[in-house]
Design a protein around this nucleic acid. Structure first.
Lengths: 172, 172
DNA sequence: ACCTGAACACCGTTCAAGT
DNA sequence: ACCTGAACACCGTTCAAGT
């Protein structure tokens, strides 16, 4: 006698993403997720392998967002920053390297910036240009999210200044 | 009747730093630290407030190393990278923002790069220059440690290339 | 004074028993 | 088929009792 499904992987991941942002990684317990989706904790294991697996799914959801960006280097960089601001905990989770995601998802996430960098520096220098911009952008966002820029000043201005200088430097 | 002290804060932090590098944050249990220093887990609470407190001490040990750097921007950046390579888990812990350290230790850690940036860009532009270089360097190192640069190529070369271009861009 | 065994609360996970 | 209560292992932490 089948029982109707009372939740779904999507609902679980969605609940987990919200909990991560509000309560942090420590607050992301299977119990908290279960309450949120309306089942008991053991039922979650019908949909996800483990808590670590759930965390991986959260990371891959953020990487998916990063895969769907378009435009020149300024547009892509701004979009990445917007995604980071929307879900800071998830973004830092992805960038911290604490989570091993599927290679394919990871590669897909770096496509847009690689494409924008190629348009800027030409195909021969696309890789090194993309690396330089990506390093700077993720570093900037990371410090921004951590309060590592607590010495005052306008962050939007610092972002625009740094990106402009970087683009000029890459053009050579 | 006093009992001789069988361990110390230094021994505990030192053991914890080693465990963090070999077994990761999840492997850093109070039990594992206790075994390493030769006491039972409850005894650790005579020296550190909690596991989170111990993790903070680990982070501050890395920040202390970052405070004692000297030289121009190339020397300081290279030294930061060397520290990151020596203790990657601790470095990523510090940069991930998962740990709140004392403000003073944090500020001291950014001194050397600020000084080097001032020498490069002049006092008026020191802050923005330091931010740009720091963002790039921490981003680069973070991606390097996470395997985020898995598209091939020589990383030392990419580092030198990026830093050189960045310095040129900052000089204006 | 510091150290320890025992105990407690909390969490991830498993599983037999329900429907 | 999916859901659940009960149970287990593990971990952080407290504390009374030892020396």
């Amino acid at each position: 006698m089948p029982t109707p499904e009372r939740t779904s992987v999507d609902a679980i991941v969605s609940a987990a993403r919200d909990i991560l942002e509000t309560d942090g990684l420590a607050g992301l317990t299977m119990q908290a997720v279960a309450v949120r989706v309306g089942v008991r904790a053991p039922s979650l294991y019908k949909r996800v392998e483990s808590r670590d697996d759930l965390i991986r799914l959260i990371a891959e959801a953020t990487l998916d967002e990063l895969s769907n960006l378009d435009g020149d280097i300024y547009a892509v960089a701004a979009a990445v920053r917007r995604i980071a601001h929307a879900r800071p905990a998830a973004f830092q989770l992805v960038m911290s390297g604490a989570v091993r995601t599927s290679e394919a998802v990871f590669v897909a996430a770096s496509e847009p910036i690689l494409r924008a960098a190629a348009a800027l520096a030409g195909p021969d220098n696309a890789l090194v240009a993309a690396r330089t911009v990506t390093a700077w952008a993720t570093g900037f966002i990371g410090m921004e999210l951590n309060g590592g820029f607590n010495l005052g000043g306008d962050l939007d201005e610092a972002w625009a200044f740094g990106l402009e200088r970087l683009v000029a430097a890459i053009r050579g």
